[in-house]
Structure formats: C-alpha cells, structure tokens
Computed example of a mutant assay.
Amino acid sequence: MARRLRPVDLGFVATAPVRLVFAREISASPERVFHALADDVPGWPQWFSAVKLARVTDGGAGREIRLRGGTRFEETVLVAKEPEVYAYRVDTTNAPGARALVEEWRLAPRGTGTRVQWTFAADGTAPFRAVLGLARPGLGRAFRDAVTSLDRRVGAL
C-alpha cells in the first residue's frame, strides 16, 4: 500500500538523518548525462537495471518509478538545472518505514567528461534507517553499474 511521505525541499539533502553519497567520473559530457537524467526519463530502465519503469507525470513536474522487486515511487521534480543538478522528492511509496526521501544528481565537468554525484537522502523509522545503512554497499554497486551503463549509452549518441 502506498503511503504519503513528508514533503521536504532540496535543503533536506544536507540535513537528512541518512545521507548516502556516491560519485564516479565518466567520459560523457554533463549535457548528455543531464539529458538522460531529466529529459529521457522513460530511458532510465535502459541504463539503470534496478528501474523497471520510469515515466514523466504532471507535464514533466513529476515522475512515476517502479523498481524490480515491486517498490514504487511517485515523485516531484525539485530542480532541473541543466547541466548541473537534477533532484526529485518521493511523495508516495510502498517502501515500508520511509518518511521522507530526496535523490539529487550533481554533475560537474571533469576534463572532457563528467563527475556524477548521487545523494540518496532519507528519513524513516529506526528499522528503515538501519536497512539503508546495511544496503549502502549494494546501492553503491547499483550506482556504479548504472553510471557505467549510462556512460556507454550516452557516449554512443
């Protein structure tokens, strides 16, 4: 059953009780990476293997995401500043114990490529926070694999 989460703003990324931050440098330009993140939302399953379905809602102001395994998110885009940052807040989810969640993608030029930084900022029940701590290595691998796949995908365009 989907539950409504606390509506937080972008400042939550800096203050969340749980902040998982991952970064990787890739060869694709920030503009191409931003386009894949913000403009080609339906393309996410092609490079992020955990994502089963991604679609734009509310004329681009929102997103619907379904993960493999059944977790679902309805999100609001908080910022889409090309080519620097793309962030969204989860409004409703079926993930047990979640109370607030924001994901932020920061892009910075590195030579001819991009440094991609993903911050997963969350609050929830004590068991939810503990599970996120335990899931950190897996989320790090998922990020690394996704960004590597994204680099191959957008580098080929």
Rank of each mutant, 00 (worst) to 15 (best):
G11M: 09
A121K: 00
E64M: 09
A108R: 11
R136W: 13
M1W: 09
W44G: 02
A61E: 11
A23K: 11
F22K: 02
L134S: 08
S49G: 11
E74Y: 08
R55H: 11
V77R: 01
M1N: 10
N94K: 09
V102N: 06
G113N: 04
A87G: 04
L67A: 12
A14M: 04
P7Q: 15
S29L: 05
A122Q: 07
W118V: 07
I65H: 00
M1G: 15
P96Y: 06
R153I: 10
T71V: 15
E82I: 01
A156H: 08
P137D: 10
A23N: 09
A61T: 00
A108N: 00
F34R: 02
F22M: 13
L134G: 14
F128L: 08
F120E: 09
W47H: 12
A2I: 03
F12T: 00
A80I: 02
R106I: 05
A146M: 12
P7R: 15
R3Y: 11
Q46H: 13
A100K: 03
E31C: 01
T148C: 08
V85R: 14
V18M: 07
V77L: 09
S29R: 12
V56Q: 11
M1K: 11
A121E: 06
R99P: 04
T114S: 07
F120D: 01
G124Q: 07
R6C: 02
V51H: 04
P109Q: 09
P7N: 14
R89L: 14
V21Q: 06
A50V: 04
G124N: 07
A14D: 14
W44M: 13
D40Q: 11
V13L: 09
W47I: 13
W47F: 14
A156W: 03
V77C: 09
R152P: 03
F48V: 07
W44Q: 09
L67N: 05
F73A: 10
V13F: 13
G111K: 01
E64C: 05
V21I: 09
L5D: 02
P42Q: 08
R115P: 04
L132D: 02
V102G: 06
R115F: 07
R32T: 05
E104A: 13
L37R: 00
P45C: 13
G11V: 05
A36H: 04
T15F: 14
G155V: 08
E103L: 12
I65V: 13
L157V: 05
D145M: 11
V131F: 15
G140P: 00
A142E: 11
R63Q: 15
V41N: 02
S29V: 05
L78Y: 07
D91R: 08
E75R: 02
A38D: 05
G69W: 10
Q46L: 15
V33H: 04
G59E: 10
G43Q: 12
V79C: 11
L107I: 04
P17C: 09
N94G: 12
W105R: 03
V56G: 02
A2D: 10
P109E: 11
L139V: 01
D39I: 01
R32H: 12
A61Y: 00
R68T: 08
F73M: 14
G70R: 04
S27W: 03
E75F: 11
V79N: 06
F128N: 06
E84V: 07
E82R: 14
R6T: 14
G97D: 12
V131H: 06
D39R: 05
V8Y: 06
Q117V: 14
L10Y: 03
